[in-house]
Amino acid sequence: MTHLKRAGALLAVVLLAAFVVPRIIPVPDDLISFGFHKVDEAANEQFWASLPMQYANPTVCNDCHQDKSSSWTLGDHRAVSCETCHSPANDHIAGKGLPAVDTSRDFCGTCHSSLISRPANFPQIDIGEHGGQNTCVPCHNPHDPREGMPPRLPHSMEGRENCQSCHNPSEPLVTVPPRVPHTLEGRENCTSCHGTTEARPTALPRIPHSLEGRDNCLLCHNTSAIKPFPENHTGRTTDTCRNCHQPAG
């Protein structure tokens, strides 16, 4: 038996010496270093990760252009990155020219021309009709597009004393229902309907409403205006209304 064991041990040593140990020398750790056999993933990732960039970001732009970014931060375009309109900035940052900006109607229209596919709550205009064929920028500051525009409705009355400076009879700016814009003829006191602290151009006073400050019923309640005025009421005047319609509250 001993000689058999010895033979076995010898065979093992020979195997190790002849095949396993030399194999370590010619067979490389990986095949990458021998050319085209396998992708060197780490090197490839490094290649992609180190490519040069074209686009910076608003934080970088703000380093120099605070004058623009201060109005932009508050305006309705604050979610729009500078480079969305101004094109990539990295060449400009490196001192190579100014980033181009397109101020044509068509460029603004890429976002704001009316399309059935856009979300309904996104501001859209009929590019063929709106504002003639002028460029947009003279009226709309691109950094703060609502600057100088009518306030969103309903707006607060704070600091607004003279309603007719915006809402004048010949050119009413409010275009909201019901039956509005109405003429301002005979309506001196806007706040009698439109509240004192908060304007209510989209809603009429709650019914029944108080009569405080309202002395001319037919101003609102007439055949051509807002509230019901039954046919059999023809000929009635403000003086007779309260015979039946008692003030609320």
Binding site: A79, S81, E83
Partner: peptide
Amino acid sequence: CTWCYHRINRGLIPACVEVCPVG
């Protein structure tokens, strides 16, 4: 598309995300 591998590995967001005006 690599999701702008060169940007995300520098701590930035891909260019398409950067310029999207409506998020």
